[in-house]
Design a protein around this nucleic acid. Structure first.
Lengths: 341, 341
DNA sequence: CTGAAAGCGCTTACAG
DNA sequence: CTGAAAGCGCTTACAG
């Protein structure tokens, strides 16, 4: 009752023999080449079915074919933003017959570099990357390497590759201007991961707005955990300089602020207005619903995947492009707007 | 100023020539084989660096080596549950030097089958799968194929493979018993995707509980969209048989119920108690916070990946095992419990 | 400690 | 329309 030992995969040669033809005929049949007599093709297909033959892609790659695979490296797969990006990339790739290697860097540069390296070995036809540190030197080698690279959300500062980004500064301005429109004057900013260019841009947009409105430049809180958020915000709100509005620079900081508000019994939209950067589905479920700047996450994934696929198809002539996607303000209630029925 | 035409990758042979040794010596050096004179190894490593040589994994695979890659197919990468599972799988795989192909089936059986097929071609060393339909015939071929398969969250009914699942029935019982403990007597169930075994089990657990408590078997609502949830629930709550508690079978249905409650001005925990299956981070942010059955998503990912890796390492002797992970009830307030400070 | 030979499973020219 | 030869970049025996 034992399985008949190592069930080795059938090879093209096996199929050829079984069908009584040469290997080339089998190859041509599989690849839909013209010039195979229908009669012969039938025999080949029968043999394939009977032997349960599956082409070995590794062998194909060796003959100089494309691997039909790309790599995607994001900081965190479980993050609501990156999981949507990843889903879109995967879907776009699949539509073009591509398979995708997916890796998470966990915000660790050495993991990121190792994953890029490993993917390069395989080799992949191209890599999609959300770089942890857009200035690290290793990126230079990656960017000038033989494998096309497109970065998502952030561009590489030490070299030039294609990138697909989002209007960070303009988005922050929309948020802060809306707050100002509500008559808020002491607007603070809560940030995390502020070493990232994207966050820096958002902070810059925030500061720009305050300057233009001749408002005092309020505090920018740089936080790295919920616990820190709680103590730091308690201090801020008990100081003489209590803010009447908050701009949060990404979903993590927005969520920390919401939790902290709960503890401090602050009602967003009343006591203090709140607008966050990066919209998340469940913001509609929170009371009050959170007003936020919406990034086109799926579009980001789709665009970058398409761009990479184009590069792979030989469009390596043109110089690298930075694509910047627009964002939009989704007005709900945490900013102070009335509930609309 | 043009790049010097096709920057072809250096091969092992190139390195060998540059270092003045045979190809085998290079191969051995790379693979950390003993018996390479340190003197020689140095020359080889220098040549590797100078030529920026990267081993071609495809060639390696052809010689019968493992691919050091696994495939993972989930229904939806953007789903909070599966994104956590995926992240854990990826991390576990990486720790063992494995790369993972990640694909989403979008609940489409033909996409799933096509992805499995494509991964098989590559070929991968093993596949992790959340089957869309655990009874489809194609799974039979997959399960008996030469590539090890481990299913996650659901087991294959038409064949036997390893699986890592969760205590669906027991989890549902915990939820419903808790509701009964609160004195609720007319407990309805809101389900979606009820063709899935997991959901069926949860419903079975729910019904079992009611029977044991000699409560009338209330309605099981089978919904497939938020819109449907709204109309169906309105009808139910306006009927003579208004439930005083709801058990929702997964995160989608829980969220639909929350949205519907909002519209109907029903406060969970007061008018109607609510306990859901599948816990999601942001349930703490909702008012009232949602009580739910927590599945160990990360653990599910880790366990299944480890199991698959073991199978790949030749542990194909033992017969397939179904691992069932325990769940826990996370008590918050939507069930009627008091807020704890 | 090191290398020449053969082969992994395919495909690209080249012939017919 | 079809096939024999050579080669893709490695590694596994086999020798030395």
């Amino acid at each position: 009752m034992h399985k008949s030992s190592p069930p080795k995969r059938a090879t093209l040669e096996d199929v050829a023999k079984a069908a009584g033809v040469g290997p080339m005929t089998v190859s041509r049949t599989i690849n839909g080449h013209p010039y195979v007599a229908e009669e012969t093709a039938k025999r080949v297909r029968a043999a394939i079915r009977q032997l349960d033959y599956r082409p070995n892609h590794a062998a194909r790659m060796l003959t100089g074919q494309l691997s039909r695979s790309i790599g995607l490296i994001v900081p965190d797969l479980a993050d609501p933003f990156f999981s949507v990006v990843s889903h879109a990339v995967q879907e776009t790739a699949r539509e073009s017959g591509y398979l995708v290697w997916l890796a998470a860097s966990n915000d660790d540069l050495s993991i990121e570099a190792a994953q890029v390296e490993q993917m390069t070995h395989h080799p992949v036809d191209g890599i999609l990357l959300v770089p942890v540190d857009s200035r690290d030197r290793y990126l230079k080698a990656v960017a000038t390497g033989t494998t096309p690279v497109v970065t998502i959300d952030r561009y590489i500062e030490v070299a030039s590759t294609d990138s697909v980004e989002v209007e960070n500064r303009a988005g922050a301005r929309m948020a802060v201007e809306h707050l100002i429109g509500h008559g808020r004057r002491r607007i603070a900013c809560v940030a995390t991961n502020s070493h990232l260019r994207t966050i820096k841009e958002r902070i810059a947009g925030y500061e720009e707005c305050l300057r233009e409105a001749r408002l005092p430049r309020a505090k920018v809180l740089q936080l790295s955990s919920l616990a820190e958020a709680k103590t730091t915000m308690a201090a801020l709100f008990n100081s003489g300089n209590r803010p009447d509005a908050l701009f949060t620079t990404n979903n993590a900081s927005t969520i920390w602020v919401i939790e902290t508000f709960r503890e401090m019994n602050i009602e967003a939209g009343k006591d203090v207005a709140l607008v966050g950067f990066d919209d998340v589905d469940f913001y509609t479920l929170i009371r009050p619903p959170i007003t936020s700047v919406r990034q086109p996450a799926a579009e980001l994934g789709r665009m970058s995947a398409r761009l990479l696929l184009q590069r792979i198809k030989g469009d390596s002539a043109s110089s690298s492009v930075r694509t910047v996607l627009p964002v939009s303000l989704v007005i709900r209630e945490s900013c102070g707007c009335e509930r609309k029925e």
